[in-house]
């Protein structure tokens, strides 16, 4: 049976096409759904295994990134969403999707208090949009999204990506192993808030968190923009090196594994198609 992913769009979300493409690469049957269509027919969620809120500029980031779209989801979809996450499903929020998922309270949802906001994802310390490649280390986590991955070289592109929270929230997230991703320097050492390794000044270098089950992941970097080698910032160097060494340049880059992990979680091993 085909595994299905549903990628939300509408009101300024803008990364739905490439994100849906990433799921298809990993073996999903992926569909893009406008939030108004899903609100009209929320039963559609009963039939899918993965829900993705992708990147974008929903409502132009007005009133704080992700806030307005989260309100729309809260008012039109909340019961269906609760039902969806109670099933053995996976959910991911990427960039603007991360801000939406955090505002909606789907992650980190400490003690499974879904719907409660524990973290804010707010203005970068530079107060400026940052589009750049960074390195992110996977922490000790139970998230199926990140199984077997240690590190990502991956792009970020956001104006509001700084995780902020109360000290006790931070401690709980650490204790419960809900901090899934941290910004690091290229050599793997902690970024310690240093720009540009941490592009936004996030608390404790946090780049992504999960809910207690690990099935809901919310992250600021864009794995779908780093799934192929040709998308990488060092593509020209890698291409040249491979040619000199007489090797074939691998097609895949770090980001793809995350989508494949989701497929594998539902037992669709090696379902990947070639581009």
């Amino acid at each position: 049976m085909a595994i299905k992913s549903l990628v939300l769009t509408g009101y300024g979300i803008n990364s739905e096409e490439e994100t849906s493409f990433a799921f298809e690469q990993a073996g999903f049957k992926s569909q893009i759904r406008h939030i108004n269509d899903l609100a009209e027919n929320p039963k559609e969620l009963d039939d899918v295994q993965v829900l993705c809120v992708p990147g974008g500029f929903s409502y132009g980031d007005d009133t704080g990134s992700g806030n307005a779209f989260a309100q729309k989801m809260r008012l039109t979809l909340w019961d269906s969403l609760k039902k969806f996450i109670e099933r053995d499903t996976l959910t991911i929020g990427i960039c603007n999707g991360c801000q939406i998922v955090a505002n909606l309270g789907l992650a980190p949802a400490i003690d499974k208090k879904y719907g409660e906001r524990f973290v804010a994802v707010t203005h970068n310390l530079t107060a400026r949009y940052q589009c750049r490649w960074v390195d992110v280390a996977v922490q000790e986590t139970n998230s199926p999204w990140l199984a077997g991955i240690k590190k990502f070289h991956i792009p970020v592109a956001h104006g509001e990506g700084r995780f902020m929270m109360a000290d006790e929230t931070l401690k709980t997230l650490q204790d419960m192993k809900q901090i899934a991703l941290r910004f690091v320097k290229p050599d793997g050492s902690p970024a310690k808030g240093e720009f540009p390794y941490s592009p936004n000044g996030s608390t404790d270098d946090i780049a992504g968190v999960t809910d207690p089950t690990g099935r809901i992941l919310t992250l600021m970097p864009h794995p779908e923009r780093g799934m192929f080698t040709w998308q990488r910032d060092d593509y020209a160097v890698l291409k040249d090196r491979a040619r000199r060494e007489g090797k074939t340049l691998p097609e895949r880059a770090d980001g793809l594994q995350l989508f494949e992990n989701a497929a594998q979680y539902f037992g669709a091993a090696n379902a990947r198609k070639t581009a």
Binding site: N14, S15, E17, E18, F21, G55, R128, Y129, Q130, C131, R132, P155, A157, H222, E224, R225, M227, Q231
Partner: peptide, 11 residues
Amino acid sequence: TQYDHNVQGSS
């Protein structure tokens, strides 16, 4: 760096 040049995954 303040213009998103990676969106659409095409860069």
